[in-house]
Design a protein around this nucleic acid. Structure first.
Lengths: 341, 341
DNA sequence: ATGAAAGCGCTAACAC
DNA sequence: GTGTTAGCGCTTTCAT
């Protein structure tokens, strides 16, 4: 037979299906000997419990839905990997969906996931999302949801995000301590939160250190390799090079590396480059990239842990907020004059 | 109310639940006006169909289970991304699990997934898997399964794999055409299929070209960055450098880059490096890595397409075999003397 | 210690 | 066109 049910086992043993059900779940009602017999024949018959049926009447699926903008971005794949790790360790499945940074796909994904009656949701918003309708629905259905990395503010959901400003401030202070004052900023798109907030910390810190802000060194662009490349080219053609470039993410930094090398500029001797990124990617840079480390695994684990705690009501659902700290990691792409690092 | 059911809508409208069910699925039985009324009140009440219930009685979940060794490896994250893309486009969900290269976790994942009654499975075996028991079970339950990248042979399942030998042969022939004869091989572990098969093509091609095989240039190691690094160090300390190094994957290549640069060897002027990899990672190498391109997206899409075709019985299940072709991509890490590439 | 009855939310088959 | 009946596979009372 292909699909054995509890009733098949019951028939085989001439007992009731309830007895089988209880025995298989090690219910105290059933005698040791009976249990043994049932478990054995179940194994012999190749019984596999039907979790769908169980889910239906327990109204619990032990399933978490994830919506992520893009899995080709290693930052996200590390996050998802760590979420799956944590979820699996706590007996939850993960249904993974990708929004491709499209609001419409994201919405569709969310509706499917709530149709699947996931116990909770982990969501990183697409860059273009503005409509809150689906999320309101999720709220009404009392499905716990935790935003990670990119979140709506002023909604009743929890979120786990990086604390960008302190990271920028701290790293820039260290850079300035080294004696650098000529610092450019490749900011990404300033209409996005990430672009805006990261630039704010930059301006604030320079101002506090009485370093004048040069507009021509704040270059707005996208978030991809090519944007970093183009921005660096602009820098060069301006004829006015800074000592060090601060980049909004690793792809932009890589583009800057490319352009610098093409122009015969040595890193870090002729120009330093550092920016947001995470430890695991530094090795892909030559020389190793000095980064403000945004640890994706930490973020993934914290978000998933928070969600499961909310699902299991170990903590009140919604409006919890966790900041993941960023740490400045000196590698090789900025010369440390003072500390000889 | 939090969780609206069809019966709630029926009660509200003083009609039977079946009418509601039919109307919502646009069944021809129901009149236009009735449908409209039902759909509207459903929306107003915030009805979300319970897919679990639907799955239970249709015995179809529209869910695909994926088991992958590691999501931090970008090769796999690209594969998974493309699978999700394809699956979503064909109205399937994806439950994603990670085996961490552990046979025991892989087995657990598979048992959970078949308990969830996935419609099909996409599996890349862990490096240590030898036991076929779970797979036999999957076979008995008639659940379509497609292996990708790493597969059991001689089982009744389909598989999608790279055709390693022709890739190696073709690339090596091109390299040899360039006039190179002193070629080293960083082979990975030879007890694994991948290591073994990739080396075979190497030996075969050199032999055919009457190039003597030098044992000291075939260096067995692991598959990680550090293994490439150590292997290269060995090469150097042997005092006998080849002209070009052929690596078993991108991480090993990166390690080789590191060691080469540390030793003051320029790539490609002093030594060339090329190996298995994929297009998207070449940019992370400086100079860009010349690769035998194993396109993960192609593999992901083909595997997923095959699986869905088997699920939907558009094709006979099992024993289908698809080879993904590899393409040699000249980049910058091997100097082309002849073609000036 | 074992079992009968009822229900999770939905749908297919069959009346009316 | 609309509704009734029965059942997907399991579990939770509540009897016996």
């Amino acid at each position: 037979m292909v699909n054995i049910r509890q009733s098949d086992i019951a028939k085989q043993l001439n007992i009731s299906r309830v007895t089988v059900s209880k025995a298989l779940r090690d219910h105290p009602d059933i005698s040791r000997s009976m249990k043994k017999k049932i478990v054995e024949t179940a194994a012999k018959m190749g019984y596999v419990p039907n979790l769908i049926a169980r889910q239906l009447n327990s109204r619990r699926t032990f399933t978490i839905g994830i919506v992520v903008p893009d899995l080709e971005n290693s930052f996200f794949s590390y996050i998802v990997d760590s979420m799956i790790d944590y979820a699996t360790g706590h007996n939850y499945y993960v249904i993974l969906t990708v929004s491709r940074e499209k609001e419409s796909i994201e919405k569709q994904n969310l509706e499917n996931l709530i149709g699947m009656r996931v116990d909770g949701l982990l969501v990183c918003l697409s860059q273009e999302t503005t409509d809150r309708e689906v999320f309101t629905k999720v709220g009404k259905m009392n499905i716990p949801l935790v935003f990670f990395d990119r979140a709506f503010k002023n909604m009743k959901f929890s979120r786990v995000v990086f604390d960008d400003k302190p990271g920028a401030v701290n790293s820039l202070n260290q850079i300035i301590l080294e004696g650098y004052t000529k610092i450019a900023n490749f900011s990404g798109y300033l209409k996005t939160n990430i672009g805006k907030e990261r630039l704010e910390g930059f301006i604030e810190t320079l101002t506090k250190n009485k370093i004048p802000i040069r507009k021509e060194w704040i270059i707005e662009g996208g978030f991809e390799l090519n944007d970093g490349y183009e921005s660096f080219k602009k820098l060069i053609s301006s004829g006015n090079l800074p000592e060090v470039v601060f980049t909004v993410n690793d792809r932009v930094a890589l583009g800057a590396y490319k352009a610098a090398k093409e122009s015969g500029l040595r890193i870090p001797e002729d120009i330093g480059i550092f920016g947001y990124g995470f430890n695991e990617i530094t090795d892909f840079f030559d020389p190793q990239l000095t980064v403000i480390n945004q640890d994706p695994r930490k973020m993934g684990v914290e978000a998933c842990k928070l969600l499961i705690n909310e699902i299991e009501k170990k903590i009140k659902s919604g409006r919890n907020k966790i900041f993941i700290e960023e740490e400045f990691l000196w590698r090789k792409s900025v010369r440390s004059k003072v500390k000889g690092k």
